[in-house]
Design a protein around this nucleic acid. Structure first.
Length: 252
DNA sequence: GTTCTAGAAC
DNA sequence: GTTCTAGAAC
C-alpha cells in the first residue's frame, strides 16, 4: 500500500470519511489529517490540502509546485494547513497530558524534498523517538536546524519578504537539500555527535526522559505556586473574620 | 519501505 | 566467526 501516490489518492477523495479510522484523524472542507504510516516521533500526523479550484492536483503536487502557483491561492492553502495544524496540535497536547502527564513541543513543517507525491505538512512531537526512526536520512530530514525540515512559519514568512526571496526559496533544488540528509548524526537537543543510529536513538530516549523530568518538576513548582496564594487567601479570610470584632479587618 | 552486501565491531 | 550497521539498489 505504500506507494508514492497514496497521499494524492487520499486528497482526491470526495468522501474522506470512507477512509479507515486507522488512517484518517479528521478532515475539513480544505484539508485532511492522517496518521503518518511510519511515525518518526511519539505523535506524527500529516495534513494534506484537498483539491479545490482553481488549484489543481498538479499545483498541489508539492511545496515546490504550490509556491509556483498563484501567490494568493498558495498563501490560502498554507493558511488552511496552518489552521488545521493548530487544531491537531491542541489534540496532541491533550493526548500528551492524558498518556504521559506532561506536554512537550510540537513541530510543523515540510520536507524540502518530499518522498511522496502530494503536498503534506508534518505535525510531529519534538522527540524523534519512535521505532520507525531507523535511518540517518529519516533523522536528518526532521532535525529542526539541519535545513531539510522547513518550518511552516518560515515558509509563510517567505511571502512577506521581497518577491525575489520567494522566487529563490521556491526552487527547492534536490542538489541543494539532499546532501543535508547525509550529514553526520548529532543530537538536535544538545548537539552531541553520535556515531550511529542505535547510539543516537538511545541518547534521544535519555534526552526525552530528561525533558519529562524537567516538565514534571515544572508542573510541581507551578502547583506549589498556585497552592500558596490559596492558603494565604484562606488565612486572610480566617484572620479577617477573627479580626472583625475589632473593626481592623481591611488592614490585614 | 525492503533487500542485499560490504565492512566494521565485537 | 558472528553480529551489527550503513548505504546502495530496487
Amino acid at each position: 500500500m505504500s506507494n508514492l501516490t497514496i497521499l494524492r489518492s487520499y486528497a482526491q477523495k470526495a468522501h474522506p470519511e470512507t477512509l479507515p479510522p486507522s488512517v484518517l484523524l479528521g478532515f475539513s472542507d480544505k484539508t485532511l489529517t492522517i496518521f503518518d504510516a511510519y511515525p518518526k516521533s511519539v505523535f506524527h500526523f500529516l495534513i494534506l490540502p484537498r483539491i479545490r479550484p482553481p488549484l489543481t492536483v498538479f499545483d498541489l503536487a508539492s511545496l515546490r509546485t504550490l509556491l509556483k502557483a498563484d501567490k494568493a491561492h498558495a498563501r490560502s492553502v498554507l493558511d488552511a494547513l496552518s489552521e488545521e495544524a493548530e487544531k491537531t496540535k491542541r489534540l496532541i497536547r491533550e493526548e500528551m497530558g492524558k498518556r504521559y502527564g506532561y506536554e512537550w513541543d510540537i513541530w510543523t513543517g515540510f520536507h524540502a524534498v518530499p518522498s511522496m507525491e502530494h503536498l503534506h505538512l508534518h505535525v510531529l512531537s519534538a522527540d524523534l523517538c519512535s521505532p520507525s526512526m531507523r535511518h540517518k536520512k529519516h533523522y536528518n530530514s526532521f532535525h529542526p536546524t539541519r535545513g531539510f525540515f522547513l518550518p511552516l512559519e518560515d515558509v509563510r514568512g517567505w511571502f512577506d519578504a521581497e518577491p525575489s526571496y520567494l522566487e529563490t526559496m521556491r526552487e527547492l533544488k534536490k542538489s541543494a537539500y539532499e546532501p543535508l540528509l547525509k550529514e553526520d548524526l548529532a543530537c538536535w537537543r544538545c548537539g552531541a555527535a553520535m556515531k550511529n543510529m542505535p547510539t543516537l536513538k538511545a541518547h534521544l530516549q535519555e534526552e526525552w526522559e530528561k525533558e519529562e523530568k524537567a516538565q514534571k518538576a515544572k508542573l510541581q513548582r507551578k502547583r506549589k505556586r498556585e497552592e500558596v496564594p490559596e492558603d494565604a487567601a484562606e488565612k486572610k479570610s480566617r484572620l479577617s473574620t477573627a479580626a472583625l470584632p475589632c473593626g481592623e479587618s481591611d488592614t490585614v
